[in-house]
Write a protein that binds this DNA or RNA. Structure first.
Lengths: 188, 188, 188, 188
DNA sequence: TGGTAAACGAGACGGTACGTCACGTCTTCGC
DNA sequence: GCGAAGACGTGACGTACCGTCTCGTTTACCA
């Protein structure tokens, strides 16, 4: 019989959080400001979310930027290069960097939530890489004894570190990273 | 002619910051609490530091943990493995993790200061790796066309990412990383 | 629609201000101390009052001590003497003196508020005197050309000055003042 | 052998205090600002004066405005009127009002010092009035049984009260006061 | 079709920390 | 030893948000 939760309010808060993070950075977002921006009362926020980090978490999961597709051609090296280059150049848009930094800030603040978020966000990417590399193993292009999950992590770690430093990887570095990893995992 | 700055006060603040970061995490450090803990007035803190981040910065630069030595034997792979393993197991001490997370938090908050700090702290490590790899290039163990700085970055990025997630690299992952990178850069 | 202002909080602040003024004097009252004493947050004080003086003002207006009644007998001189004597001996209670001194301090600090307060507090007294003297004029006991408001002011000024100096008027001085003023205004 | 106290520093502080009181009011004078204004170190101020009030006290005693002379003609009423009118119009200069208000503020804050200051400053004036009235008593213009000191106090109290309220006495009020008091004390 | 109960906006509340200001004390150095 | 310069510990200032708590008001469901 009660009135159901207002989807409109929820959306407003998500939108306000995304806007605030992109324009001012996660640290300077306040619940007070969020409520005002979203035209929502503080109580409504506290009723549905347990912390600022939780709001950002939901916003990230919901509005997750479409990460670039890892192509599947015959040339593994070129596939990885193209994909990792696309990921890195995405980071040149200011908005994406701020989102990534916000994710890092949340993780540095709240380890448990951070882990969960990273898992949810990174898993699809890791999944892609792992799957592509397994295919390559089957094709005999990657050694059987390579732990493909670790390789996926190396890509993610480089991206994360670059975002943290606000220093997106340029083409040359992208190439260097792919080159080293490809040689590191390639058969022969 | 006025009274000179009190070195004792400065030291107290550094010590209080280190203690607070290790026990409660960077975010929950307050200037107020720091001043109380250090037996120093807030004014003294504001007189000499421009922000909480700046205090942590100074504390980190000053009390930098001795990072493990990269050995120089005939076996490059083993040298790297031993060194990276030592670095990773250092991260199993809670204190180190908290310091690293604090560094990440500061970087995520104040990009400029973060960059400077990361440079100051990471440079000696990168220097070691680069120098060791150059030696190996001269010995013909590493290909001439490898960008050794990028390889150094890959080690740092993995460490940073692991610290961020509070998930230190276990022996198996350390081995996997070194294995891939060694194959990636090795001659032949 | 929001929660209405808390009358309890308002009362607490009033009470705390009155207590503090009487025990320590107006100057050494602090907002911080007032808030603590009243069990109220500083923000609540700043939300509703613009200054320390404004709080005292409200407290004075609200808790105004009942000033003595000016009797109306056939003997004007005796009426004035009795009333002015009562007023003066009220000033021998420490509390009243401190309140009067606080009023003076506020007036010396914030002229506009001071004027308003003095008006609100002195007006009923002046009113009494003026009305009594007009009655006396009608009865032919006071000359028609006397500006009775000025005479009222002379009583108030003497009281204020005595309070300022912390030197309450003794019976002899009270008599002397009334004697001079009575002769000054009396018919014949 | 010790260096004697610097008269120059003392003068600077006095001047700075007078200037500050006249331009901003006593309450907002700070030792810090006084020192800066006077080009003197705080220590020098604290060495020689015990409080802000004490500095003002010294400044007032030293730079005491010449109070108007009470003339001695054959017409007592006219003498008093001229003198009291001069005193009151002096209060129309903003500077004088601020000085008087400062004196009142100090008195309301520090009763002991205030009493001493008032005594030092008011005594010469009271002396004049008392002496003039005694002369008049001898001439038979004032009744023998009048307590002339109380009459002097009535003039001072009116002036003080008017200054406190920042409401200088206009000519009409001056006349009314003198008229009432003259009739009050006059022979016959 | 009207009652009812939860969700809503608004915002007051007791708090904590902020960064600034002035206090009064102290230490240093030059005269 | 006086005086300038100014660092120090102290504590109040006024502000910003915190998270909690009423207040009406609105709105979907159920009787």
């Amino acid at each position: 019989m009660p009135r159901p939760r207002s989807e409109k309010a929820r959306q407003s808060v998500m939108a306000a959080m995304r806007a605030a993070v992109m324009s001012d950075g996660y640290e300077s977002v306040t619940i007070e400001g969020l409520a005002a921006e979203a035209g929502v009362s503080k109580q409504t926020i506290y009723r549905w979310w347990s912390s600022k980090a939780a709001i950002l978490g939901e916003a990230l999961l919901e509005g997750s930027l479409p990460s670039p597709e890892l192509p599947v051609s015959e040339d593994l090296a070129e596939d990885l290069r193209a994909w990792f280059s696309a990921m890195s150049s995405q980071a040149e848009h200011l908005a994406s960097v701020e989102v990534a930094r916000a994710l890092i800030a949340v993780t540095a603040t709240d380890a448990a939530l951070g882990l969960a978020l990273n898992k949810r966000l990174a898993d699809p990417i890791i999944e892609q890489v792992v799957s592509r590399l397994r295919t390559a193993q089957d094709a005999g292009d990657v050694r059987r004894d390579v732990d493909v999950a670790v390789v996926a992590d190396q890509f993610i770690a480089m991206s994360s570190y670059a975002a943290l430093l606000g220093r997106p990887l340029d083409e040359a570095r992208v190439d260097a990273v792919v080159e080293v990893l490809m040689r590191g995992i390639g058969a022969r």
